[in-house]
Design a protein around this nucleic acid. Structure first.
Lengths: 345, 345
DNA sequence: TTGAAAGCGCTAACAC
DNA sequence: GTGTTAGCGCTTTCAA
């Protein structure tokens, strides 16, 4: 299994030329049936495996795809990577994962690194800091295959896979309103991210539909996506210190949601008595929380799969692709008691 | 950034030979200072990046390491992968992640795949099903670099990085005993895994030290590591149906711990009133659970880092390595109220 | 139907 | 100090 036989070895053993062996192995038709059988048999016997590096050099392709995410240790992204890996594996691609830790500089370096490693395409979810899309535009204009997922780039026309963030956010907000909450604060990721903007819009639309005012002071961004715990704590305190304290909190980022709960707990706030909570998260244990957490859940695995399918199709396309799809999957709203309206105060 | 210049391009542009360019680029001393400057300047200008594939072919190394884990979407492993990635990135290696989903067949296929892809080394955490270590032995005997982490292979002498599972388990069990629990059941992963055996031993030793009997019927294995939810449910029910129902449950696997809680909740069991719980998990939200969960936490990130350091050292070693280290880091016992002894029944 | 040879990008042994 | 060349493993013309 580990010996590294080459076609040269086969050729020598069988008294053939390397090109004949190559042809036999690749099922070419310009070869004698008997020779072919001989070669295939022998190759099978010694368990010959073509050297993928040599192939890559020849084909000018690496059979690997680069992935750019903020963090692997994140419910959403680890599930998405699972999906990415499942498709990539089936289609014969390596997956090279890089993490930005929400830093634009790190993201830029990662992309450069992946490109210099000659990945065949890129699967990108932008960092919270990223506003400069120059490198992606540059690559995309050169025809380099890129697919964005989750945190997609606003003005680059390529395949994109997300959920319907507007709707997911609208539905959750409306649910809170229907429960009787009137002062719903909104805590979201960096405004740079399109998903944050969409989630904000969904939130606003729900308020408007139900005749509730949109209040600037109820609207908070965390520019580091919850990587910076202190930043979140300051924000939460600001919200709690408002003269008209919010009666519910709608959080639209995975890590942020968990952070919020930790901070509220630390501050001794009761959920949902003092403040109700609903949040985006893909945590598998949200139902185990105290109280069970109302969540908007994304089909992360499936998103990873679809994005990877699209990317590989792009890579393997014989012709330049000009038609790009933006796909929006549905979120799932799981209503639990963290968003109950309790009269007690 | 994306143009793919070669040393040939540089050579042509500067009227030099490719070898001269190569020498200049590689800081060889047998080269004129002026020529070197010229080459470096030009290379910088066009943003030359050596083709790693060509290098790999030449060096017979791929600068990539293969990772075998059961699942990415797992608190422990996603954190470990974070650590792996951080070191690999710094030292110029790709990380290729594969998942076994706790299946031996899948594990075998993954290893074969990685080997055929010519990874330079392997970072392995065995699947719950694995008992046959033939392929690893084979590779290891050939001098192929392998480092095991977490679920290490019993009789292969190479670097291994784990926690002190015996101690982690002993301490947690002793804590339960000190709290006043007398009938402590033990739920662990497949017996195939050395970590399961070590954790079992720690549990047994703590019982013995405190004069409590070890009862076979309090000892349960989940052979699929919690991948199979129904398997866990059956086992939990068996425990709860025992004439002398356990008063505490000590679970020693990440996914299993979460599963248990879900099942107990579903069955309407109160924790810790009906049954107390302590478990191995690296979940970041254990303190948010209802009740807050007592956990044994592993330094997963650090384990990933150390294992990767070791592996790369092995790969880059000039001489065959014969001295191997088995490193055991400390676990952290976080006592929370899921393991409180409440007199109420 | 098969073989010889070039070439993918790079390094290094060997000339000069 | 610099150029020439072979070779890493493979595919693919071009000849035979």
């Amino acid at each position: 299994m580990f010996e590294t036989y080459t076609i040269k070895d086969i050729a020598k053993a069988l008294g053939l030329s390397t090109s004949t062996v190559s042809r036999a192995l690749n099922g070419s038709h310009e070869i004698g049936a008997e020779t072919k059988r001989l070669v295939l048999e022998y190759a099978e016997k010694i368990n010959y495996r073509p050297n993928p590096i040599a192939l890559s050099l020849k084909e000018q392709r690496s059979h690997s795809i680069g992935v750019v995410v903020c963090e692997v240790a994140n419910n959403y992204f680890s599930q998405a990577i699972n999906g990415i890996e499942s498709i990539a594996y089936d289609r014969g691609y390596h997956v090279i994962i890089t993490q930005t830790h929400e830093s634009f500089d790190r993201e830029k370096a990662n992309v450069e690194h992946l490109i210099s490693r000659h990945v065949d395409g890129l699967l990108v979810s932008l960092s919270a800091e990223t506003t400069d899309l120059a490198q992606y535009k540059y690559l995309h204009n050169k025809g380099f295959p890129i697919v964005f997922f989750d945190r997609v780039a606003p003005d680059i026309t390529t395949h994109k896979v997300t959920v319907d963030n507007y709707k997911g956010s609208f539905d959750a907000t409306e649910m809170l309103i229907n429960k009787g909450f009137k002062r719903i604060a909104h805590l979201t990721n960096s405004y740079n991210l399109l998903i944050s903007q969409d989630r904000l819009k969904g939130y606003q639309a729900a308020l408007e539909k139900h005749g509730l005012p949109f209040r600037e002071d109820y609207m908070k961004h965390c520019n580091h996506g919850g990587m910076n715990h202190d930043e979140v704590e300051v924000i939460i305190k600001e919200l709690l210190d408002l003269p008209e304290r919010p009666d519910a909190l709608f959080v639209t980022a995975d890590r942020l949601t968990i952070n919020c709960l930790q901070i509220l707990k630390k501050l001794g706030m009761r959920v949902p008595e003092d403040i109700a909570i609903a949040g985006f998260t893909n945590s598998d244990s949200a139902e185990l929380f105290d109280p069970p957490l109302t969540t908007v859940r994304q089909p992360a695995f499936q998103i990873g799969q679809i994005a990877t399918e699209r990317l590989i199709n792009l890579i393997e396309s014989k012709y330049p692709v000009t038609e790009f799809i933006t796909e929006q999957l549905d979120t799932e709203l799981l209503v639990r008691s963290s968003s109950d309206k309790l009269s007690a105060k």
